[in-house]
Design a protein around this nucleic acid. Structure first.
Lengths: 231, 231
DNA sequence: AGTCAACTTTGATAATTCTCAATGCAGACA
DNA sequence: TGTCTGCATTGAGAATTATCAAAGTTGACT
């Protein structure tokens, strides 16, 4: 893991970060100690239960937020793409509510939580940005509840895959660093079952996979198929 | 449904509402049109997809927030107790993301969303309160994801029942207005399956039910039992 | 008291999903 | 190039959960 001081002013991600609403001058005067961090795939950035000290902006790569149960099961609570914020569970939360693990090599900006908190008091734009992300996260979480509670395995997987590739509209084939186990832990299924469904989808030509890339020729078909295998 | 002007200053719920942090004077000067509303059980307060105009504070009673799927399934996204806020999906959200349906006769305070929004800009205490509820809701939603994704039926039900009675610490037996169908739609199970598990729990003396009241002699036992029927 | 409607319980059977075990596959590395 | 390790796939059987159908219960209303 490497770290250096970050130059927020010229950051390519600024437009998608929580500092998006600020002027160039305001960014210059943040007065925050922002670290620029690099971690390889499979790194745990922080553990569930750890005292929370930093928040991070995911600049590049993928991260999973995981909760573990005493019975040995793990549940991926959320998957993060570039531009997402992590580690900032709440205003006065002093412990991380999940573990953050990189799925790929990852670039992050690390901010001190105390400083970020203070900043959000001072700058309405930052507060709004955090607020908005929160709202987004809640909405996402509630959608997941519906997926997990009211849909069958194949429909869950199909919807998820469509959403995933939807997050990479530029590319023809989206990067796909998730293992079958990751998928299982995200969708509440066993790895084997995920594997079987994936194989089925591929057999039906609804899905192509190759070297960590995934492609869905026609999302509508995929959703239709998953919906029709069972009401 | 009856409505009259509300007297926030003397409201018994004020301490638990989003106006909790305000002084008596500030409450007097809210300048908000707060309506005092009463609705019977089984009323839909607003529908999923409706343009959002009001937020509500639940003063008394129980409410379920429901999302419906095209396939006919319904999923209860959240259950609200007294003191909870509803209808306030986000600052700039103009549509309700779920339907709100009363489980019991219910007392509500109705606030105009636009006014509440303006108020939260003006009064940091209100903003903080809303913020805090949000964080709470997100945390709750993520916990639900874990429940739905990583636990079996009996464990889900057990944890839920313990949480439910935990929300009524004063009483020996907690009010329990949920039908088996409600439980099923909350936990992602069929009504029949819920019924069977409930019967089992009662047979083992882990649970008593009588006239819309529920009692758990020893929550620890209940959780233990549900955990042990399967790893 | 009688009736109705809504909710609950129970049973039988089917569908879904999990678990365990074995095998296949591909990239990392010596 | 061989080997090794981690991941993916496949199969078979078991466990879990859903579905369908039929009674049973309860409470409200007449």
């Amino acid at each position: 893991m490497t770290a250096k001081h970050s130059d927020c002013v010229h950051c390519l991600m600024r437009g998608r970060s929580i500092f998006a609403g600020l002027s160039r001058e305001e960014v210059c005067e943040l007065g925050m100690d922002v670290q620029d961090i690099h971690v390889p795939a499979g790194t745990t950035i922080y553990h569930e239960g750890d005292p929370a000290q930093y928040a991070y902006t995911l600049r590049q790569g993928g991260i999973k937020l995981v909760k573990s149960l005493p019975n040995g099961h793990a549940q991926i609570v959320r998957l993060l793409h570039h531009g997402d914020l992590l580690g900032f569970e709440g205003l006065r939360t002093d412990r991380h509510r999940h573990s953050a693990i990189t799925l790929t090599g990852t670039d992050l900006c690390r901010l001190e939580l105390r400083a970020l908190d203070a900043l959000s008091q001072r700058l309405p734009a930052v507060r709004e940005a955090i607020f908005a992300r929160w709202q987004q996260a809640l909405q996402g979480a509630e959608d997941r509840i519906v997926e997990l509670g009211a849909k069958k395995a194949d429909a869950r997987l199909a919807t998820f895959l469509c959403q995933w590739v939807g997050a990479y509209p530029q590319q023809r084939a989206a990067p796909f660093p998730l293992t079958r186990q990751d998928l299982g832990e995200f969708l509440g299924l066993s790895t084997e079952h995920v594997s079987r469904i994936m194989a089925d989808l591929k057999r039906h030509g609804l899905l192509h996979e190759h070297k960590g890339k995934i492609e869905i020729p026609d999302p509508r078909n995929l959703l239709l198929y998953a919906g029709s295998t069972s009401a």
